[in-house]
């Protein structure tokens, strides 16, 4: 029964990523035996929670055949806004995060409006807003980054929950876990999630079937803004400075994580679990390489290569699927 449940969760792509994760773990462990220490694994989460939160929103967007290149800029924007919230309004961490969420949500909503109402391809919209939001962030906050936050601000990013008396769990990890599970439930078990997949497979047929395509898109891009803002809050708490260039090039990491995790660029396929596994692979890779004293730029090279390989693999899988579909469709006579 457990096995069947497990197999239900793991499609072939997810199984592949899981295998890859195991391989990566072993490789990183071989590089540095300290890799396997519990503390190390938990410490890793300090860094991957931010990427993970954004990936939770990016995955469904890619599943619908879209993309959001502005996530990194939305992170920067919300970070700057939160900095201003403290500096000019003296807000505590709770209300300040709420302010950041409003900023991110609004930014995401604007993306969604252009995509769903004005019908501009997501690639172009988010390429433009990537510059726009980053520009606003730089304009607002580049000169004097706020860094004199009171200690309450550092809880989320730097403190621990002590579990079972001895295990130190970084405070941001439960956030990712809770949101990850919720996102998975929504995507795989609710009406909304079914709509997302339908749009990704065949937007026209989904429209004919009464799926509210523009609304779904609007929600997804707004959610992306919210998650970016949340990631920004975690970042701020961890780094203790409201840097306007926060999240630069984050989109690359997030897209790599999703593509690696089996979320197909062509739309219609992928899962939250896959994205999370992809996240773990990338994080392990980065962490292991860092422990192994591999320089930062070399890590990025490896990540870039990983993205390419994952994209190529997806292309071949997609081709096989199309070939299977056309041979079934060929039995239809042309009219």
């Amino acid at each position: 029964m457990m096995v069947r449940r497990l197999r239900g969760l793991l499609g072939p792509e997810e199984a592949a990523v899981l295998a890859l994760l195991v391989v990566t773990f072993c490789a990183m462990g071989a590089l540095n035996p300290r890799f396997f220490e519990t503390n190390n694994l938990l410490e890793m989460s300090r860094f991957f929670v931010e990427t993970g939160l954004v990936a939770l929103a990016m995955a469904p967007i890619i599943i619908t055949g879209g993309i959001d290149l502005s996530v990194g800029s939305m992170v920067g924007l919300s970070v700057v806004v939160m900095g201003m919230g403290w500096r000019h309004l003296g807000l505590g961490p709770g209300p300040d995060i709420a302010l950041g969420l409003v900023a991110g949500g609004l930014a995401g909503f604007v993306n969604g409006l252009f995509v769903s109402k004005v019908r501009i391809p997501p690639l172009i919209v988010t390429l433009a807003t990537m510059a726009l939001y980053r520009g606003i962030a730089l304009g607002l906050g580049a000169r004097a980054p706020v860094s004199d936050f009171p200690p309450e601000y550092y809880e989320l990013g730097q403190a621990y929950y002590t579990v079972l008396g001895a295990v130190q769990v970084p405070q941001q990890l439960p956030l990712l876990v809770v949101l990850g599970v919720s996102a998975a439930v929504v995507l795989h078990r609710t009406v909304f999630g079914r709509w997302v997949y339908a749009i990704g497979h065949n937007e026209r047929a989904a429209w004919f079937a009464g799926v509210p395509v523009p609304t779904v898109r609007l929600v997804l891009y707004t959610f992306s803004g919210l998650m970016s803002a949340l990631a920004g809050a975690v970042f701020l708490s961890r780094v203790a400075t409201a840097k306007a260039d926060a999240g630069t090039l984050m989109e690359l990491d997030v897209i790599t994580v999703c593509v690696l995790g089996g979320v197909s660029i062509y739309g219609g396929k992928g899962s939250i679990l896959g994205a999370v596994l992809g996240l773990l692979v990338v994080s392990s890779l980065v962490r292991g390489l860092t422990l192994g004293r591999v320089p930062f730029e070399d890590q990025k090279i490896i990540l870039g290569a990983v993205l390419l390989i994952a994209a190529v693999a997806q292309h071949f899988l997609a081709q096989r699927a199309t070939r299977a579909r056309t041979s079934a469709a060929k039995s239809e006579p042309a009219q």
Partner: peptide, 27 residues
């Protein structure tokens, strides 16, 4: 080659080469 031969969508291909080229340079 990536776009035309391997048929990777241009946005993904150039997103990857963006990081590959820059970081190889720094390396």
């Amino acid at each position: 080659g990536l776009v035309a031969r391997v048929r990777i969508p241009p946005i993904i291909a150039t997103l990857a080469t963006l990081t590959l080229f820059r970081n190889t340079l720094i390396h």
